[in-house]
């Protein structure tokens, strides 16, 4: 049997909102250690890697490893039926055809059950090696979301250049161009407002706005986002999910023709 309970559905609701633009379906790998998802978008340009540790759940039981193929659109619809304060329980039996979502209101007076059919999926797991990146930037997630949104008006791609001085985002298009520079924070009053750059060597990479704007849907999950970059390799954009896990997005860079 598999059973995982969160005291508040808000986290799971936010996770679904953070992946629904990129994924139509995904396999949820459930084991003793927790729930993991690794899935590419249809175009194979980006990859979502989600990790929710079992010790972050209020209750977690997984008698045997399960791979459950889920339709993300349906799952999002179901999670939207839960109030943020509802307790959410995921339940499946061994060799399941279905997964059950159970929402219980705080006063325990309303109990909702939604059963979703699982789907068979071909899995294509990418082996992503541990990488030391040339630049690792931590910055406010809302600021990153704002920059992606603002610059998307000017072009289809954003160039990110990172040096010791700071991080510069540039977009150029038919109607003009725009660039936004953020300096490393000298002294941040609040940790979540800091811009921190850990640089081994400068990096300049170009990425499609469309995907960056999908990644920033994870903004409600965490006050800070971590961007890891090296020359000519995919960007890693990471959001912590409370003390339960993280979501990482990988995005292949655009390369000059």
């Amino acid at each position: 049997m598999f059973e995982a309970r969160l005291a508040q559905s808000a986290i799971l609701k936010k996770v679904l909102e953070a992946v629904k633009d990129l994924l139509t379906e995904a396999t949820f790998e459930c084991s003793d250690s927790g729930i993991q998802v690794q899935a590419m978008d249809n175009a194979h340009v980006s990859l979502v890697s989600l990790n929710l540790r079992s010790d972050g759940f209020d209750k977690y039981r997984c008698d045997r490893n399960l791979s459950m193929g889920m339709n993300i659109g349906t799952m999002t619809k179901i999670l939207r039926c839960a109030s943020s304060e509802d307790t959410v329980t995921l339940r499946a039996w061994d060799n399941p055809d279905n997964i059950i979502f159970i929402f219980e209101s705080q006063n325990k007076e309303k109990l909702s059950e939604y059963e979703m059919k699982l789907i068979n999926m071909d899995q294509e797991h990418l082996g992503i090696p541990e990488t030391v990146y040339s630049c690792v930037v931590k910055m406010p997630s809302q600021e990153f979301a704002r920059i992606c949104k603002d610059l998307s008006q000017f072009g289809e791609a954003i160039t990110i250049a990172c040096s010791k001085e700071g991080i510069k985002f540039t977009a150029a298009g038919d109607y003009g161009n725009a660039n936004i520079k953020l300096a490393q924070t000298a002294e941040a009053d609040k940790e979540e407002e800091a811009v921190i750059i850990d640089m081994q060597e400068p990096v300049k990479l170009t990425f499609a706005c469309r995907y960056l704007n999908s990644f920033v849907k994870a903004t409600p999950l965490c006050a800070q986002v971590k961007l890891s970059m090296s020359g000519d390799v995919p960007l890693v954009c990471e959001y912590q999910i409370g003390d339960i896990g993280h979501i990482r997005y990988y995005l292949a860079p655009k390369i000059d023709d």
């Binding site: 990859l47 990418l126 082996g127 090696p129 990988y250 995005l251 292949a252 390369i255």
Partner: peptide, 14 residues
Amino acid sequence: TPVQNDLQEFYTIA
């Protein structure tokens, strides 16, 4: 114009 890469050019299927 820069060309969009495929993620599978960077990572192999495990």
